[in-house]
């Protein structure tokens, strides 16, 4: 798969939510290009091309604005409330040789030993921040969990990173645990726990305030 994608962009003359909504109706995604101490540019990209590019794992792309081509990295994507459609993209200018800080998803591989004993693999963090060359951004970091037993944990420092990449996140971040599901409580215990009605904070305060006054009268 070719790692470079070229997209044609047009400068957005009008900015703001109404203008952006208009762009989206025409099948274009509003975006912003910034970085390298240059002025930020409001642009729009063809929705289909961008979505296909992202689905194919492209993070680095060439943006053609007029006759000028800029190399950019997708910094952030905004989705609609259902998480279906991209509504905005943040693109940061980069050099191929430049070292960049990116978040890369974690991919769990294999079936843990502990799952056969009733354990459940829980993924506490699904991405790591790494520093690497812009040209060598990995699509994902593969974490093998086959050796994990019940009670085992895996931290960011235990992960083998791709060559040339260094960990930027805290090394003590918890990634994966293999633990037993808490046993269901007995029905009697549950009945005891259930209160009839919640405690009302304001009523408790009023009662406290009234009590000292009564004492003073006495």
């Amino acid at each position: 798969m070719a790692k470079n994608l070229q997209l044609n962009a047009t400068i957005r003359e009008n900015t703001g939510s109404k203008a952006a909504a208009k762009e989206r109706k025409q099948g274009r995604i509003p975006a912003v290009v910034y970085g390298h101490k240059k002025e930020p540019e409001a642009i729009s990209l063809d929705e289909h091309n961008l979505v296909v590019g992202i689905h194919h794992g492209h993070r680095l792309m060439d943006i053609k604005i007029g006759k000028k081509i800029q190399k950019v990295l997708i910094k952030d994507l905004q989705y609609d409330h259902l998480g279906r459609n991209i509504i905005h993209a943040d693109l940061v200018r980069v050099d191929i040789t430049e070292t960049v800080k990116v978040t890369v998803p974690i991919e769990l591989k294999g079936t843990a030993k502990g799952t056969q004993e009733g354990g459940v693999i829980t993924e506490h963090t699904d991405h790591l921040e790494i520093e690497c060359q812009a040209a060598n951004i990995p699509e994902s970091i593969v974490v093998t969990v086959t050796d994990m037993d019940v009670g085992d944990t895996m931290h960011a420092k235990d992960v083998e990173l791709p060559p040339g990449a260094t960990l930027s996140s805290s090394p003590d971040i918890l990634l994966v645990t293999c633990s037993l599901v808490a046993a269901a409580k007995a029905a009697e215990e549950i009945e005891e726990e259930v209160p009839a009605a919640p405690e009302v904070i304001t009523e408790a305060k009023e009662a406290e305030e009234e009590a000292p006054e009564e004492k003073a009268k006495e």
Binding site: E193, P195, A197, P198, E199, V200, I201, T202, E203
Partner: peptide
């Protein structure tokens, strides 16, 4: 167990 808050500021 039906959920409800433990403490509330106002009942209604």
């Amino acid at each position: 167990m039906v959920m409800m808050p433990k403490r509330v500021k106002y009942r209604k």
